[in-house]
Design a protein around this nucleic acid. Sequence first.
DNA 1: CTGGGGAAGGGGCCC
DNA 2: AGGGCCCCTTCCCCA
Length: 258
Amino acid sequence: MPRSFLVKKHFSVSKKPNYSELESQTVIVSPYLYETYPFPIIPQPEILSSGTYCPSLVWDTGLLSNFFTSEPEYTKAIASSNEESKPLDLTSLSSEDDDGKTSDPPSPALSATEAEKFQCNQCSKSYSTFAGLSKHKQLHCDSQTRKSFSCKYCEKEYVSLGALKMHIRSHTLPCVCKICGKAFSRPWLLQGHVRTHTGEKPFSCTHCNRAFADRSNLRAHLQTHSDVKKYQCKTCSRTFSRMSLLHKHEETGCSGTR
DNA sequence: CTGGGGAAGGGGCCC
DNA sequence: AGGGCCCCTTCCCCA
């Protein structure tokens, strides 16, 4: 399965684990890459730009009209954006939402607590500020009214031009490894990849001195030093160092006993 | 089969 | 608004 189509799933795992342990780790950003490697590993910014390696695929807002030739509404919106640099008018979007035109059930937001008096009429999520609600709607729930930017290469749609441009990079892959030619959508992905060539591992575990090229991998490794792992089976209370291991445990059928 | 390491991708936040 | 960075998550592979 192509990883580019991984879908973020929500599990009952705390979004804010205790990273105090991780924060105490020694993180050494070595100048190794720049000083000792015989050729430029991390491309200069101009190299990272799409133009150097994929001139035919350079993203340019001027090309947007080509992407949306069948969507005059989009090009109109984009043209307007380019000319005047206006942000989306969230006020108008919001007022339309609050007009009761949707088929969603009436929002109880107005009678909610002061702290959460702005409620999304699409998903009922509450916010303490209008700005928070507006941002939420723009990002997630205004599918009926928000501007939609469609990708030319796939069927994905985004609510903002910036999000679309970011996504398009996953198609154009403007960041190319000078060593092996592999291409990536973002410079920091390339940077991480380059470490696989150089062997640089700037993230060290203070427990065992093992080093990692990727911070997330260090974080996963730290779990192996813990008696009580972060991911727990609700049935048998057994804990796992990785969510994937917990999923595997659940999929294979938890017996309910440890 | 399980656990762990390596590599990679996307979303979101901050500047 | 856009880029950089961080975090989370997943898949693959191997011991």
